[in-house]
Each structure stands twice: as structure tokens, then as C-alpha cells.
Design a protein around this nucleic acid. Structure first.
Length: 498
RNA sequence: GGUCCCUUCGUCUAGUGGUUAGGACACAGGAUUUUCAUUCCUGCAACAGGGGUUCAAUUCCCCUAGGGACUACCA
């Protein structure tokens, strides 16, 4: 090793959206790089032309940026080891595959997909070892030349050495051993000239001087192949750490069908990026000291691979909700308002022809923020700030809209009409005094008033709510409610309720 | 089938050869409040099972069970 510089990479393949499991891998790489003042690299592994999805690259970039995970080298930022998109490095892979062939560590294989399927079928029947049988290993030069001359398609396979014990150290689990005889001669370069993951990964990690490979634990079983590849090239392998997967609450994989799976799903569900960042970091990693809510700098300061658990963890959305609530509470109102406005527009609650009443929306956000766990909850609770209630919650109406409530509301209407400044304090004074003069509990006025202005029986403190809504809206809604109650009262005699 | 990985409250986890096995989320109860939410108390709840090693194992070793990954010209 020339240097002990930390260089890590997140290497997704653009086959779809960025899964939260992938995001967590990216996050751990990021935290580790920052912890050691190293370099975090983004590399796109697009060597499968069949599964490539154009849209996916953009979604990956967008998801990472939204989460606040920025890369030091990679697409869009570049760096000294580019290009960082594998389809732009095909020459590199071909050269290296040929190099291995020349050194006797690899060979051309002309076996047809049909033959491969046949031997595979037989192996399955015999329940023996699966994998390529090495048929083309022993082709003579003459046979190879004649097939090449006739334009027969071929792949380049790695020649697995026999009788070897392949050992590597996993920073999270310790030593892992495999017998090389269990491995088959895997493909390095495909018929179409693209490399397989194994080749591209090893070549790039070496060329990009990657010091630590932190990746999903589905790669454990492939690691001995990679180790053998490094050896064949004469390179020293990086350190490895395999991260456990993230499961859904039912113990299975996290999937779109069972709710959310991608980073953008969580954005759409109303979560804040800093909350998801914090939550994801704590899945499989714990800094000790019972600390949970941490900002990125704190996480970076205490991050270490040794503290990562080898155990798969369940994504507990309830806990994410709780944590999101904490971040909602500390987000500045102006910032939260910026997040909420587009969502209100989607709902069609904002008058697009009028100028945006930011002051009003900010006051609303201030009232709703502490009782919302997600942006979507806040928006869901915001309707009556823009739309007059057209109906009232049924149970609440039975409880808070008795016939005499109309008289109470009318008195309040009169009082509020004459209330000099319409602030929470004077409104509260008005309510309390009125209740006192009528000899009734203040709640007898408060509850019907809340229902009248909001249509529901819960929400912010009534007086600040009234102040925020403003006199005009409040009086209009109170009068609507009075009319509603009176209409119901006169209708009642003709209606037999059960 | 083969190989490999994993196993502390329901969930995320801390932890140690001798602890009342700690915290957080969730859940339940209570306090506060004009409602809801917040907040604050309190409670419930775990070392997968079986063998060893040891004066002593949740902790070290082995086995079993359960879960998972890989076993492609996918990553």
C-alpha cells in the first residue's frame, strides 16, 4: 500500500429506484469516508444492458442528493479516476480480461447457452455441485483459432485454481473461508463485450484505489472469487465489510407492494431527509452511549465499522415517524413552509391567481408542526385553513352542537365582531368572561367554536387558531354553523332517530 | 441439494465470565391541557434450544432449530 488514504465507493446499478437498503450502504460509506477524511466515490455499474433503465440514474442521483449524501468523485463531479460509469470503461475491462488470459488465469469459452442449460439441468437432477463444468478449459490452440476464425461468439472465463482455501477478513464478522473447489469458472467478459460484475468491480476498485469495500452481504459468497481475481492480477485486495440487509416489519424484504421501499417513496410519504438519514444510520449501527438523535457531524465523529451489527434489521416505520416528528419540531418554520407550499398547491387549496400569503401559511405551520409527524400529516390537517367546513365531524357534532350551541355561538359572534384586536389573549378573555357571565364552563363555548371553524374536534389551541384564521373567516364560519344547527333543530321533529 | 452468514424485550439496540441485563420506538396506565398532539411520570417486555468449558455463563466452544444470502453471459 502506497498510502493509507481511505477511499470508498457506493456502486449501484441503474436497474430501478434507489432502495433504502442501498441508501443505507451509501450512507455508511459516506460516514466512513468522512470519519477518516477520505474520499467517497459514486460509481454506476451499468454493465447489464438488459436491465438498464435510463431513468434510474437520475433517480439515484436525486435520492442521494435529497438525503444529503454527496460524492467527492463520480458522475457530475468527476475526479482523477474517471469515467465513473462502467459502460464508458469497456476497453479497460477487455484489456484486463485479455491480460488474465495471457497469464493463463482465464480462457475463452465457446459453449452455447443451450449446452449451459443442459449441464445445469443434469447437475440439478444429480443435486451435485452447480456451475460451469470447465469444458473449454482444455481446448487446444488450434481449436480456439478455428472457432475464432469462424466468428463463433465467446466469453472469457476465469480459471479457478483447484484445491485452494480462500480466506478473507470481513471487518464486521471476522475471517471467512471458502474452498476454491466449490467455485466454478465464472464469466469475466460476456459475449457482448461487457464485463460481469466480478471483473468490472475488481478492476475498478483497484484502478480507483478503493481501500475499503462496504457493500451488501449478498456479496459475501462472491468475495472469494474477487479475492482470487486480485491474486491473479497480482494486486492486493481492499478490506471488506459486508452490511446486513434491511427487512420489512413482517420479516420479509422491503418492497413497493408492501408500502415504501425507495428513498423517494419516503420523500413522497412526507418524511424529512435529515430524519431518514438519522434513522437509516441507526439501522445496524449504534454509537453506544444510548444516543439516537444525531446530526451528520456527530455521526461522522463517532462512526466505526466495528460497531456495525452483522444482523439483519427490521425497518420500523413507527420509529422513523417518531424521529421525523423530532426533526419536524426543530425545522425552522420558514423552511417547513417551503416544503409545504408545493403540497398545498397539489391539493388545490391555494388561490393560484392571488399572491402567496406566506405569513398566513407560516402561522399555520407553526400551529400544526408540533402535532404532525410528517409533512403529509401537516398537509392533511391543513384543509380548514383554506376551505370553510362544509360538514362537521359526526360524533363531534352530536356532542358539541346541541340546539343551545347556536345561541352560544351567536353571542360569541357578536363578541368577536366587537373584539378590538382579535388576538389570542383578548379572544381568550372574551370567551372566559362570557362563560362566566352565563355560568357555564368555558369548554361549553370552546368546543362548539372549534367545531364551527374547523369542522373537527381536535387541533391547535382554539384562541391561537382563531387569531390565525382571522376575523373574517371566523365570523363567516360561526354564522354558517349557527344556520346549520338551527336547520337541524327544526328538522329534528320530523325525523325519527332510531 | 451444496457453501456461507445471522440469532438480547414485538422492533432498533447497549452490555458483561459474577449486572436488579440498560436505553429508544411501539403498547398500556397516569399527570398536565379547551380538544388533539407535545411534554412528564409509571408499567409491560428479551439473552432461540441442548450440550460442554468454568467456582460461575447471556457472554467462550460444539450441536440443533429457525431465519437469510449465494449457487446466471444479474448486479
Amino acid at each position: 500500500m502506497m498510502t493509507d488514504e481511505v477511499r470508498v465507493r457506493f456502486a449501484p446499478s441503474p436497474t430501478g429506484y434507489l432502495h433504502v437498503g442501498g441508501a443505507r450502504s451509501a450512507l455508511f460509506n459516506y460516514l466512513f469516508a468522512k470519519r477518516h477524511r477520505g474520499t467517497f466515490i459514486l460509481r454506476i455499474e451499468d454493465t447489464d444492458r438488459n436491465r438498464f433503465i435510463e431513468e434510474a440514474m437520475r433517480e439515484i442521483y436525486e435520492s442521494l442528493k435529497w438525503l444529503g449524501i454527496t460524492w467527492d468523485e463520480g458522475p457530475e463531479t468527476e475526479g482523477s479516476c474517471g469515467p465513473y460509469i462502467q459502460s464508458e470503461r469497456l476497453e479497460q475491462y477487455r484489456t484486463h480480461a485479455e491480460l488474465l488470459a495471457a497469464k493463463g488465469h482465464a480462457y475463452r469459452c465457446f459453449c452455447s447457452p443451450e449446452r449451459l442449460a443442459t449441464i445445469r439441468g443434469e447437475q440439478e437432477k444429480k443435486k451435485g455441485k452447480l456451475g460451469y463444468d470447465g469444458f473449454c478449459r482444455t481446448l487446444s490452440d488450434r481449436e480456439i483459432q478455428s472457432r475464432l476464425a469462424s466468428g463463433m461468439p465467446y466469453v472469457i472465463r476465469f480459471k479457478i485454481p483447484s484445491g485452494r482455501c480462500v480466506r478473507f477478513n470481513d471487518l464486521i464478522r471476522g475471517t471467512i473461508e471458502y474452498r476454491s473447489d466449490l467455485l466454478d469458472d465464472f464469466v469475466l467478459l460476456k459475449t457482448d463485450g461487457y464485463p460481469t460484475y466480478h471483473l468490472a468491480n475488481v478492476v475498478d476498485d483497484h484502478l480507483m484505489r478503493i481501500s475499503h469495500v462496504l457493500r451488501g452481504d449478498e456479496w459475501i459468497a462472491s468475495t472469494p472469487r474477487h479475492v482470487l481475481l486480485y491474486e491473479a492480477f497480482g494486486w492486493s485486495p481492499p478490506s471488506f465489510a459486508h452490511l446486513p440487509i434491511i427487512l420489512s416489519s413482517n420479516g420479509g424484504k422491503l418492497s413497493k407492494r408492501k408500502g415504501a421501499a425507495s428513498v423517494m417513496d419516503y420523500k413522497r410519504a412526507g418524511y424529512l431527509p435529515e430524519a431518514l438519514f438519522n434513522f437509516l444510520a441507526l439501522l445496524g449501527w449504534a454509537p453506544g452511549e444510548d444516543r439516537e438523535k444525531m446530526n451528520p457531524d456527530e455521526m461522522i465523529a463517532s462512526f466505526s465499522i466495528e460497531q456495525i451489527s452483522p444482523k439483519a434489521s427490521v425497518f420500523d416505520e413507527k420509529k422513523l415517524e417518531w424521529m421525523n416528528g423530532l426533526y419536524m419540531a426543530e425545522r425552522p418554520v420558514a423552511s417547513l413552509t417551503g416544503e409545504v407550499v408545493p403540497l398545498l398547491r397539489e391539493k388545490g387549496w391555494l388561490d393560484e391567481t392571488a399572491p402567496l400569503d406566506t405569513r398566513y401559511i407560516e402561522k399555520m405551520v407553526l400551529l400544526l408542526r408540533e402535532r404532525s409527524k410528517r409533512l403529509s400529516d401537516l398537509v392533511a390537517a391543513a384543509h380548514y385553513f383554506f376551505i370553510d367546513p362544509v360538514a362537521y365531524d359526526e360524533k363531534a357534532e352530536k356532542k358539541y352542537f346541541p340546539a343551545e350551541a347556536a345561541d352560544h355561538l351567536l353571542l360569541l359572534d357578536l363578541g368577536m365582531r366587537n373584539c378590538p384586536d382579535f388576538t389570542r389573549n383578548s379572544l381568550e378573555e372574551l370567551f372566559r368572561k362570557l362563560a362566566e357571565s352565563k355560568g357555564i364552563p368555558a369548554g361549553t363555548l370552546i368546543h362548539p367554536a372549534r367545531l364551527a371553524v374547523s369542522g373537527v374536534s381536535f387541533g391547535p389551541g382554539l384562541f391561537e387558531l382563531l387569531e390565525t384564521l382571522g376575523r373574517e373567516r371566523v365570523l363567516r364560519r360561526i354564522e354558517n354553523a349557527v344556520a346549520h344547527i338551527r336547520k337541524k333543530a327544526t328538522a329534528r321533529p320530523t325525523v325519527h332517530e332510531r
